[in-house]
């Protein structure tokens, strides 16, 4: 239950932050797709939250050895790929005019996308062998 509440609070915080960001400064050019990606991440987080709530209602453990192992594998893979993302961003920083805030924003959103994709990869492939 504690984790469900924590996840819900994090989702609400992200939604509130995006709302404040848009209401204070509005959307500037090129930020539309960025917002779309954040929305996709929120949908993914919402999906995970609903899964947890369903498990809780069904009396199942919200976490077991498979979910823990999948999270560990996902974290390891997404960390590894994220390193390449940051190297790539540093590489293009010198070649394309980039606002530093936007670069960090792209990096953070990119990491979240990579994490979601890694999770989906292990979810469909499974974790058959150690």
């Amino acid at each position: 239950m504690k984790r469900i509440v924590l996840m819900g609070v994090i989702i609400l915080m992200v939604v509130a932050t995006v709302y404040l960001w848009i209401s204070n400064s509005g959307l500037s050019e090129g930020e539309g797709p960025f917002l779309g990606i954040i929305a996709l991440i929120l949908v993914f987080a919402g999906f995970l939250l609903i899964r947890r709530i369903k498990s809780w209602k069904a009396g199942e453990p919200q976490e077991d050895e498979l979910t823990k192992k999948m999270m560990v594998r996902t974290a390891a893979l997404s960390y590894y790929i994220s390193l390449y993302l940051w190297v790539f961003l540093l590489y293009i920083q010198d070649r394309v005019t980039f606002d530093k805030d936007r670069l960090i924003g792209i990096g953070i959103v990119g990491m979240a996308v990579i994490f979601a994709l890694s999770w989906l990869f292990y979810h469909f492939r499974g974790v058959p062998n150690d």
Binding site: S55, A58, G59, E60, P61, Q62, D64, E65, L66, T67, G126, V127
Partner: peptide, 12 residues
């Protein structure tokens, strides 16, 4: 439920 895991784990 008997082995205290999620149904998904049995599916996997």
């Amino acid at each position: 439920k008997k082995v205290n895991v999620r149904r998904e784990t049995i599916v996997f």
